[in-house]
């Protein structure tokens, strides 16, 4: 339990500027991280509109796309991340019981 909580989440979210789905995805991810993995998540947000080369290089073309590098296994989730329970499961997090 303690070990799990000390695991660092290394995430990257590819977005397309302020496209609605991208904005929504950022908001969903942010709320989950803040509420359930506060302080132990390393999140990089890549804006493909600003840096399309990055998308080409990383092989990510469709946005929004979340990539979880650590803890292993790597997982990729396409979409606006509207399903909170699914997102928590992907990230290996538990819902924090109450405030």
């Amino acid at each position: 339990m303690n070990d799990d909580e000390k695991d660092v989440l290394r995430l990257r979210l590819y977005v397309a500027g302020d496209a609605p789905n991208s904005v929504v995805a950022v908001a969903h991810l942010r709320s989950v991280i803040e509420e359930c993995a506060s302080g132990r998540a390393d999140v990089e947000i890549v804006d493909i509109l600003r840096d399309p080369e990055r998308g080409l290089r990383d092989g990510v073309f469709v946005t929004p796309m979340l990539v979880k590098f650590e803890p292993l296994p790597e997982r990729r989730v396409l979409g606006s991340l509207g399903d909170r329970r699914f997102l928590l499961a992907v990230l290996g997090l538990n819902e924090t019981p109450g405030e």
Binding site: S22, I48, G79
Partner: peptide, 11 residues
């Protein structure tokens, strides 16, 4: 690749 929610072709 798993899918959760909507996406678009903008990127």
């Amino acid at each position: 690749v798993e899918q959760s929610g909507e996406f678009d072709l903008i990127g």
